[in-house]
Amino acid sequence: MIIAIQAVLILILEIGLQSWLWVAGVPLAFAMAAPVSSARACGRGAAAGGLSWLLAGLYLYLTSGRIIAGRMAVMFGIGAGRGWLLVLLTGLLGALVAAVAAWAGSALRAALRGAHPSPQA
């Protein structure tokens, strides 16, 4: 559930605020807020970032993006007719960025918690 919320939030903020950086910002914030291990935060972030970009890319590819993806595949040297590979690359990049951001968020949370231990701790 938390992954889906993150993924949706990434897309909403990207559309509303016109910046790709939310694929990093949202996992960073969630990892800072969630009391989970660093590995788990990373996994959640990667899944959220990867899903949001993969599904958005796939949707655009299937509905109206085949021509442009084909041309971009040639530009990147992937080869004509391999536009679908860009869908995977898009998802992969989203996952990678979100994972690094979540890892940073988790580390930041650990650092802040160490500096100001909560009363319950």
Binding site: E14, W20, A56, G57, L60, Y61, G65, I68, A69
Partner: peptide
């Protein structure tokens, strides 16, 4: 590559 603002929108 950003699907929201990148080339996918073209």
């Amino acid at each position: 590559l950003d699907p929201v603002n990148g080339f996918w929108r073209n």
